[in-house]
């Protein structure tokens, strides 16, 4: 059984009652299922969840994130990953297993303020999530511009099977590295393309909840820039 209409809900609001499972961002109160967050209710296949419209990023295993190096000790760096937890990047991830705190200069590799594309290795919440920068598409980011959006709007930016982001990239001749944590790095050889790509991303951030978003973005991309 599918298909109660998606509704805008706020914390405490009753979504439905009856034999449903309370899933993400909902709780069961008596026979009612109640939202715990501002978002869109989604009832189908006997379960109820709320797609959030606000809130921070909670690290999940295997997520690609953009991080900003904040500090380092003799064994690891910490990176601001736009979350309630900082990412821990072990020195051995960069220097290999024979890393020596006396011989290797950590700041020569990554200094405060450097941006990295990283993957979450382990986010079990009992300690700060472990991240890695070894792997395809990962590592220090040397060019482009950092853009911040709400982490909840990342799926909208990507679009169905990547349609939205591909449209932006191809029509502005730019590359966008998307962190699931809402941090993006946009780069392009063409300064106007870069500007346009950033404007398109800002439009999605503002208008993520409207139905004809793809048309709006398309229209914006096709308009002549001054």
């Amino acid at each position: 059984m599918s298909g109660e209409k998606k509704r805008h809900v706020i914390p405490g609001e009753v979504i439905t009652s009856g034999p449903y499972r309370a899933e993400q961002n909902t709780i069961q109160v008596g026979d009612k299922i109640v939202s715990t967050i501002v978002g869109l209710s989604d009832v189908h296949d006997g379960s109820v969840r709320v797609i959030p419209l606000t809130g921070g990023y909670i690290p999940k295993d295997d997520d690609l994130v953009i991080g900003k190096i904040a500090s380092h000790s003799s064994l690891s760096w910490t990176a601001d990953i736009n979350s309630c937890y900082v990412g821990m990047l072990p020195a051995s991830d960069v220097f290999g297993r024979d890393y020596s705190s006396s011989a290797d200069d950590m700041t020569a590799k990554l200094a405060k303020g450097d941006l990295i594309a990283a993957r979450i290795v382990n986010a079990d919440m009992t300690r700060d999530p472990l991240i890695t920068i070894s792997g395809r598409e990962l590592g220090k980011i040397d060019s482009g511009e950092l853009v911040k959006i709400s982490p909840n709007k990342v799926p909208r930016l990507i679009g169905k099977r990547g349609s939205m982001i591909q449209m932006i990239e191809s029509s502005t001749n730019s590359q966008v590295t998307i962190g699931q944590n809402g941090l993006l790095v946009v780069s392009s050889e063409d300064p106007n393309g870069l500007l346009k790509a950033i404007q398109a991303i800002e439009l999605i951030e503002e208008q993520a909840h409207v139905a004809n978003l793809t048309d709006q973005v398309n229209e914006m991309l096709e308009s002549k820039s001054e």
Binding site: I10, P11, G12, N25, I27, V29, V34, T36, I37, V38, P52, L53, T54, G55, G56, N152
Partner: peptide
Amino acid sequence: LADAGIPMRDL
């Protein structure tokens, strides 16, 4: 709190 996306049972 709701604006910040903090989960709440009710306002």
